[in-house]
Nucleic acid binder design. Structure first.
Lengths: 193, 193, 193, 193
DNA sequence: CATGAATGAGCATTCATTCAT
DNA sequence: CATGAATGAATGCTCATTCAT
C-alpha cells in the first residue's frame, strides 16, 4: 500500500520537478510518512526513480503494443487517426507516466543516460513497426497511395512527436485538438490516393 | 570577460544537467574561478540562470526573426524548406542555447513557469506569423494550393516541433536529415497545388 | 540457538569492527534473521555487547584460572613457559573473545569504561596471583634465583602483554613464535639461578 | 589556524573515541565552528582522519629516528634505558598522537587496514634497526654479553610493546614506572655480561 | 520467535550565500 | 574582481528501537 503510494507520489513529483528537483522528503510527506520509511521499500533515491521510470516506460510500451491489435477491421485512415487519439488519451489518463517518459527520454540524468537510451530505442522500434504494418496494409487495401513506406512512416512518426511536444506546452485542450486535426488532415491528404 | 565565460559555462551546464542538477561550483570551476566570484556579476543562481535563459531565448527569437527577411526572392517551397534547415543550423551552431530553451519551455522550474510561458508564447506567435506570411505568399503566387492558412500553418509548425524533439533524441546526423526530408516531402506534397 | 548464533556473530563483529563500527543489522544478517529479532533476546545493543563482552572476559578469566591448577607437577620453567603457550593457544582458539577483550580493555567506549576497568583489574589480580604463586614455588624449589617476587612477576607480566600486542599485529605464526621464544629465553636466563 | 585546531581536536577525539565513535559535529563544536566549516579544509571525514593519523604516525616516527642519534656517548645500558624513558616521555607529551597510533595499528578500520599496515611495518623496521645497532655497539664495547642479536632485540622490543600496553591501561604513574624498572632490570640482568 | 513497517535521532555531505579582506 | 572562511538549510541515508501482527 505505502509502497504504491510512494511510487505514485514519486511519479508525479519526478515528472513535474525532475529528479534533482524532488526531495525524498517531499515524496514522503505526500504519502504521510517520514522519509526513512522510503528505505523500507526502495534501496535509495535512484532505485525509487528507476522503479518508477521503468513502470512509466512499461505502461507507455504496453499502450503502444495495444495499438497494434486494434486495427484489424478499421480502414487505414481510421487506424492512423486512432493512434493519435490513443496517444492523446494516454497522455491524459497517464499524465504523470507520460511526463516522466518524455522528460527523461529527452533529458536523461547522467547516471541513466544509457539505460534510458536503450529503453527508448526499443520502444521506438516497436512503434515504428506498428506504424509500418498499418501503412503496408493501407497500401495493400488501396487506401494509401503507393509510396515508399519509410517516407510515410517517418512523416507520421514526426507528426506524433510534434504532437507530443505540443501536448506538454499548450495547456489548452481546444488548441491541442485543432493542432492534431490539422496535422493529420495534411498528412492524410498526401498519404491517401 | 569572466562574466561571459560564466554565462557560457552556465548555458552549457544548465542545458545539459538542468537547473537543480547544476551547482554554481561546477560553473565556477569550468571558468577557473571560485564560486563567490559569480556573485560579483550575478545576484544569485536564479539571476544567472535567467540571464542565460533570456539570452538563449533571445538568440532563438532573433533566428526566427531573421527567417522572415530572407525569403523575398525564394519560392514558397524553398522558403519553407529553408526554415527547416535554418532551424537545424541553429540547433547545431547554438546547441547549448537550443537545449536550454527546449528544456525549460517544456519543463520550467516552478519559480519561472510564468515568465517562460510568456516568453514562449511571444516567440510562438512570432514564428507562426512568419510561417503564415510565407504560406500566404505561396498561395498568392500559386505555389501552394488554396487551403485554409491555419491548416497549413499548424501542420508546418507541428512538423517543426517534431523535428525539434527528434533532433535531441536521435544523435545521428543521417537519421535526422532523413527524417527532415521525409517529413517535408510529405508536407509539401499535400501543400502544393 | 538463535541467541547463541547472535552472540557468536556479535563477538566476531564487535571484536573486528568495534562497537560503533558494527550495526545490529550486520549481526542479524550473519545469523540469517532480521534486526528486530535481536530484541527478543537482548534488551538493546548495549546489552548484547555487554553480554558478549562479559562472556569473552569470562572465558579469558577461566583460561587464567585454569592455568593455576595445571602446574603442580611441572618445573617452574615449564610452568611459566606453558603459561605463554596457553595464552597463545587461547588467542588462537578464541580469537574473537581475545580480540574483544584486548580491544575494550585498552579502548573502552565511554559508557562502560568503569565496568571494564573493574573487570580488568580483577582479572589482572587473578593473573598476577597465579604468576606469583608459580614464582614463589620456583624459588622454593631452587629453580629460580632468589629475587624480589614483584620484580619477577612484573617482568613476566610485561612479557605477556608484549606478546599480546604482537599477536595482534604480526599476522605470521613463525614471527610470533620466534618472538615468544626469544622473550622467554631472555626472561628465564635472568630468572633462573 | 582553524585548520590546526581542527586537527588537534580530531586527534584527541579520534584517539579517545575512535573513528566511528567520533562525529564531525563534535570536532567542529570543540573548535567553535559549525560542521560544514570542516569541508573548507578537508575533503571529508576520511581525509581529516588520514591527515591526523599520518601526522601522529609521523611524530612517532621522528621520535624513533631521534633516538638513534642520541646515544653516541652513553653506555649500552643507559642507551637502552633511555629508549624506554623516551618512549614514556613521548606517550606523555603526545598522548593523543600515541593513542591514535596505538589504536589504529592494532585495530585499523577496514578502509585503511593496508595503508596502516605498511606505515607500521616501516616504523617497526626503523625501530628494530635502532635497537640492533645499539645492541651491537653494546656487545662490541663489552657491556652486553655475546648473544645472538635477534634474541636480544626481540626481547627488548617485546618489553617495549608490553610497556606500551601497560601505559594505556594503568592510569597510575607510579605503577607504570615500577613496571618499567622491573622489566628493564630483568632484561638487563640477562643481557649484560 | 520473528517480521514488516515505521520512526526519531543523528550523520556526512552539498550547496547557495555572505562577508571581511 | 576575487577569494578564503564560514554558515544555514537542506539532502540522502543509516541506525537503534518500537510495535502490531
Amino acid at each position: 500500500m505505502t509502497r504504491n503510494k510512494l511510487k505514485e507520489a514519486a511519479m508525479r513529483l519526478f515528472g513535474e520537478k525532475g529528479y534533482e528537483g524532488t526531495a525524498l522528503s517531499e515524496i514522503a510527506k505526500e504519502v504521510g510518512v517520514k522519509t526513512p520509511a522510503i528505505y523500507a521499500f526502495f534501496e535509495n533515491k535512484e532505485d525509487l526513480f528507476m522503479t518508477v521510470f521503468r513502470e512509466a516506460m512499461g505502461s507507455y510500451n504496453s499502450y503502444i503494443q495495444a495499438l497494434s491489435g486494434e486495427h484489424k477491421e478499421l480502414s487505414a485512415k481510421d487506424s492512423l487517426y486512432q493512434i493519435l487519439t490513443r496517444q492523446y488519451a494516454f497522455y491524459q489518463q497517464s499524465r504523470e507516466a507520460s511526463l516522466i517518459v518524455l522528460r527523461y527520454v529527452i533529458f536523461p540524468p547522467a547516471f541513466l543516460k544509457e539505460t534510458i537510451e536503450e529503453a527508448f530505442l526499443e520502444s521506438d522500434k516497436l512503434l515504428t513497426n506498428v506504424i509500418e504494418q498499418l501503412i503496408k496494409k493501407g497500401i495493400e487495401e488501396g487506401d494509401i497511395r503507393e509510396q515508399p513506406i519509410p517516407l510515410l512512416a517517418d512523416a507520421f512518426l514526426n507528426l506524433m512527436d510534434g504532437l507530443s511536444m505540443q501536448y506538454f506546452y499548450y495547456t489548452s485542450k481546444e488548441v491541442y485538438e485543432r493542432k492534431l486535426n490539422h496535422a493529420f488532415t495534411m498528412y492524410w491528404s498526401s498519404a491517401s490516393s
